[in-house]
Structures are given as structure tokens and as C-alpha cells.
Design a protein around this nucleic acid. Structure first.
Lengths: 347, 347
DNA sequence: TGCTGGCACTCTATCCCGCGGAGTGCCAAA
DNA sequence: TTTGGCACTCCGCGGGATAGAGTGCCAGCA
């Protein structure tokens, strides 16, 4: 038999799958006797041991100590996920229940909360969902209100009545009439475009036609620029963090603390989630693959969610490396679809 | 010696204080020998034992088992806090550092975050701060923007440029001109009043002068009512939850989980914090005094923060029952003052 | 009357020991 | 290639034994 992992004997693959199945179920190292019974291959423990030895040589399993059974390694899980895994499709009832949960009349923010709650509720692990990016939302209109002094309140209405406001500091005081002019000008110019287009148009206008602009237009452009500048929706929502406290592999207070600290570090989490937004399907980080130490004992299964083909964000599940990938993957997948659909109805 | 706790012998009080001091420091039951050394009373361990026996009879201390030292009970801490405690005033440098942290140009929301971070950072426990109530904020103006259909965006500007917006559903479609009229009317009527006054005036107007109102006024009133109705700022910010993972008394995964779940239950936490907002000074819940099971092993020290004599919210620290109250109390107190001051500058 | 030293007692934590169970690796036989 | 057998290893557990810490009580002393 070749030592090349790419054509592992079918029997060995079966055993690896059985071993992971079993280990995922009860978290104990799996011995040859158990596996012989479990794998359904009608082999003796001794034979199983030989196969296990091969799998160990390939780095797919290892034993915590001499006389314990075997445990899957990160490479083992990886191989399993990449080539052995058969996901269990979700039954319609579950999907309908999920759809129901996401179909109530909710704002995008609420939808994201619900989705994250769903993920953690169903998987009994931690759910995470980024807020939808606004880049491709439609510019509907902008209004400016004069506050005190040089402060101006900008109100940006996008998509289907999503509202954001920012307070701008202007160089001089503007009269309400001036502000009205500015907003009229911008609304005419940009109505119906999406925010990236608006941004591009803005840049273009400011560079090319600077000479043809009167002062009102300059002001308007300048304020619009400020409004769009801060328009990064870099945030996410988590749910069910405490679910992870139930797993023995995380019962160590110290690991747990690192993990929770990581959860609270927005910057790192966003960076991690950002890595998933570009792959256009399910993405799986197993153990230390994420590159973040605090997630060493954890895996993350993510999927981007889209509206009209545009990726708006990512969602996923974080749990111990020993998770039921075949169950989690379709759940993440379905949630991403349903969230996309729910957001679509709003927009 | 009388058994009445109100006039515990001075010596016994000294010992109780010494015991709590010591126990707070290292978390181990305190024995008679240690205490004899510590209390500075030049007594033999045997004498100390007699006093301890009295303290135990009074319910101020107890021993985890026959041959362990003594540990303060909730009643012990309570008596200590109520009558023995001498708070250590904060040195000016610390206060200045804190003031610095809160003096940057920040929105109220950011200030609250900073305050909560301060509390958790300095005490190495968990900080919690409610968002400032808006009830006494000044009504500055309101604007209405027509969105699609019967949706109207209401923008309420209060205090020093605090902005809130709500989306209202109206019964019929209003033209921009109608909305302008309505906002003009309300702005004239309410400018400069605080929100409770506005609410009261609104109620009064709607009941008394209904007959004299034209339809525009009715609309305006109705919309104002909707705007104010949802204006409850029921939220809080926590920081440093993971700090609590460091304490042995909470190393039990199960307790920890209950605690964290409690933290995530907004409703309960708000209810708890609400109980503190009415007492006009430092409030201390020790152990099960809060009435919430999940906080049984925890204490909470809170103080309301005020601007111009009005209580705007509560802040505090949550930590193990075994906390250095004499250190925590002045920190909570100072933070409340500083946050009040910082908010005052903004308003 | 209050303080003290002494003494017996109790309870815990820790180490060590021995043992059974589970599982492995290797080997020789089928 | 598979299998049964066998020796070996390691973990986990229960059972003393022991040391340490601390208590309660008592009798003596100021």
C-alpha cells in the first residue's frame, strides 16, 4: 500500500471516519476493540491496530499516551472534512423552523442577532454573524441638519429605509438654506446609485471638475465625503459563548479565559472573519489553522451570506475541534442562505 | 459581654476586621495563630480562639470544616461594611489618571464604555455602567423626513447634540410640507424643555385642547408621542467579565457558566441595576443579598451617577464576595463622580 | 474574671502503593 | 493478509499512612 495520503486504502478511510464519528460522539480516545465493533468491517482488533498504525504514520491520528486509544489530529480532521465527509442534509422541518425565526418583521440588525442566536441554539456552540456591509446598499438620499456651531448632522438613508447618522464638523457655519441646497444637489446627483458607485463618482467629480464647481458644490462634496468615509460597518454579533463551557476539552479555566478574551477582541475576530468573506462558500478552520493561538482547541465553520449575488457578510459557528462537522456544515450553510433571503425581503 | 451584635466588644471588632483583611488578601481560611500575629493585639492563639467562637455564635464567621480556620459569612461582611469599614481615599494621581481617561472628546456612549473599562481595569473585576437616561435631557428639536410610503423618519436632537432617530408608521402619507409644519409646530412648543416636561405637556395638550387642534397639530402630537414613547434608554455596558475567571472561588465551570449567562440576560441585570438607581449613594450587595442565585458568590458595589443633581444611571463593580471593599468603594464612588462630570461637560 | 499554655482530637491534603482495566506492539501461525 | 496470543505500558482509582493545621476544652495563673 502506498504511503501517499491521496490514495489511502478504502478500508483505512472507513476506519478514520468511524474513529472520528466515535470520538466526536463521546470525546474518549478510541481503541482498536471499539473501532473493530464500530466500523462494521468485521475485522479483528489486531487488524484494526495495524491500520491505526498506518494512520498514525500519516499523521491522521495519535494517541495521548502509550496505552490509550487513538484521537484524530488536525490533519486527520482536515482529511476527513476534505474528502470523507458526507454532510447530512437538513430536514425540511428544521429549515422551516429556522426560516420562521428569521421571517418576522425585523431590522437587519435584529436579523443578524436572530441568525446568531439560531446558530448557537441549534449547534449548542457559539454563533457569530457579521453585520451586513453597506457598500452595495442603494444611496437613497442624504439630509443635513444644523446643530450648534459648526456641527452638522448628516442623515443617510439607504436601501429600504436603513438610516444612519453622523455628526460632521464643518469649517464654517452653514445656514439651513445652504445645507438644503447641498443635500438637494447630492440627492439629485447620486439617487439610485449604490454606495461604491457614489464613492467613485464623488472622487471623480472632486478631481475632474473642481474648477467648475461653485462653493456650495464644494461644500456638499466635502460633506458627502465625510459621510461616506465612516461608513464601514465593521461589527459582528455573537451568541452562546457560554455553550463552550460545557466541553471537557475547554474545561481548563485558563484556555477558557484566553478564548473569551479573544471573543472580546473585536479587532482580531474581525480580521479572522474577514479571511472568510472572500472564499465564496463554506470555509472551515480546524484547530490552529486559523493562526490564532487562543482558538487552537477550536474549529470554526463559516459561510458568507449574500443578497443578489453580493456578499454582505459572514456567519459561522465556533466550537471545539471535536465537533460534528457533518451536522454543523449544513446548518451554517442553511443559515447563510436564509439570512440572505430574509435580508433580501427587506431591501 | 452582651451577645447583641450592636455592641460587639472592640477587640472582637478588631479581630473580625483583621480576619476579613487577611481572608480578602489570600482566600484561605484564617486560623487563630495567624490571626493572633496579624491583629496586632498581642494575644495568644487560645484567646483568639475564644473570640472567634463568639464571632461564630453571632454568625459573622464560620469554618468550612472542623479543623480549618474561619471564613467571613455574608453577615460578617455586612457588619464589616456597615460599621467597621474605613475606606482608603484614592490618591490624587489615580483620580487624575481616571479623569484623563474620561476627559477625551467622547460621546456619552463612549464615555460609558470608558468608565466601564476603567472600573474593570483598576479593580481587576467586572465593571458595569448603564447608559444615561434621557428623561431629563433637553428637547432641542425634532425633524421628520418622509421615507417610502407611510414610514416617517423622526430625528430627535437633545441636549448638546445627542441625536436619536426612530422610524414611525403613520396612518396616512404625509407630504414633506406637512411634516415640516409638524416639526416647526413641535419645535416651537417644546424647545428648551426637558423630555419629562415635554411628555407631560404633550399629554396635557392632547387631553385638554383636543377640540382646538387642527389636523396638522393632531398629527404632530401623535408623532411626537411615538417618538417619546420608545425613548427608554434601557441598556448597559460591561467590561472585564473574564477577570472573574481568575478567582478560585469561581473556578467551578458550572458557577462560572451561570454567572456569565446571568451577565448576558439583559432583563435580569437591568432589574438588578434598577434597584440601585434609587438609593442616592453607594449601594452594596453582598453574596445572596441581591436575590439572584447566580450572583450568590458575588458582591456588587454600585453608585448612581448624576448630572446637575439628576440621577442619569448607575455604575458599579461585580466581583467575588471576597473583594477589597475598602479599595473598591472609593473607586466606584470616584468613577461615578468623574463620569457625571464628564457627561456634564458634554451637555 | 480573663488570659494562657497544654493536650487530645479532627479533618484535610498529599504521597505512595498496588491493582485492575484498557490498549498497544510484536510475533508467529493460519 | 489476517488473526490470536502474549508481554508490556500506562492511567485511574481506592486504600492506607502521614504530616500539618486548627479546634475545643481544661486547668492554672495573674
Amino acid at each position: 500500500m502506498s504511503k501517499d495520503s491521496s490514495d489511502l486504502s478504502e478500508r483505512a478511510q472507513l476506519m478514520l471516519r468511524a474513529l472520528i464519528d466515535r470520538y466526536v460522539r463521546d470525546g474518549q480516545p478510541v481503541g482498536s476493540r471499539t473501532l473493530a465493533r464500530e466500523a462494521g468491517l468485521d475485522l479483528s482488533p489486531a487488524t484494526v491496530r495495524n491500520v491505526m498504525s498506518d494512520l498514525e504514520a500519516l499523521g491522521f491520528v495519535c494517541s495521548p499516551h502509550t496505552s490509550a486509544g487513538r484521537v484524530p489530529t488536525v490533519q486527520g480532521y482536515r482529511f476527513f472534512v476534505d474528502t470523507l465527509l458526507k454532510v447530512q442534509p437538513l430536514d425540511n422541518e428544521s429549515i422551516n423552523n429556522m426560516r420562521l425565526e428569521l421571517s418576522l418583521d425585523q431590522s437587519p440588525k435584529d436579523l443578524v442577532e436572530s441568525a446568531s442566536g439560531l446558530l448557537s441554539g441549534i449547534t449548542q456552540m457559539t454563533g457569530v454573524v457579521t453585520l451586513p456591509r453597506q457598500e452595495h446598499a442603494l444611496f437613497k438620499r442624504v439630509e443635513f441638519l444644523r446643530l450648534s456651531g459648526k456641527q452638522v448632522l448628516a442623515i443617510l438613508v439607504t436601501g429600504e429605509d436603513e438610516v444612519q447618522n453622523r455628526i460632521l464638523s464643518t469649517e464654517k457655519e452653514h445656514s439651513p438654506a445652504e445645507l438644503q441646497q447641498a443635500s438637494n444637489y447630492l440627492n439629485e446627483l447620486f439617487a439610485g446609485k449604490d454606495l461604491t458607485e457614489v464613492r467613485a463618482a464623488l472622487l471623480h467629480e472632486m478631481q475632474e471638475t473642481r474648477t467648475h464647481m461653485n462653493s456650495m458644490m464644494v461644500t456638499a462634496m466635502h460633506m458627502a465625503d465625510q459621510v461616506l468615509e465612516k461608513n464601514q460597518n465593521d461589527d459582528f454579533v455573537m451568541a452562546g459563548q457560554t455553550n463552550l463551557m460545557g466541553f471537557q476539552e475547554l474545561c481548563d479555566i485558563d484556555k477558557l479565559r484566553k478564548l473569551f478574551d479573544a471573543f472580546n477582541t473585536k479587532r482580531d475576530m474581525l480580521h479572522l472573519l474577514d479571511q472568510c468573506i472572500h472564499s465564496d462558500g463554506i470555509q472551515i478552520f480546524i484547530g490552529d489553522e486559523s493562526g490564532y493561538r487562543m482558538l487552537d482547541e477550536c474549529s470554526m465553520v463559516t459561510a458568507p451570506y449574500t443578497v443578489g449575488g453580493q456578499i454582505l457578510g459572514v456567519l459561522g459557528v465556533i466550537g471545539p475541534t471535536r465537533m460534528a462537522y457533518d451536522r454543523v456544515i449544513p446548518i451554517v450553510d442553511a443559515t447563510a442562505r436564509l439570512l440572505g433571503a430574509a435580508l433580501n425581503q427587506k431591501e
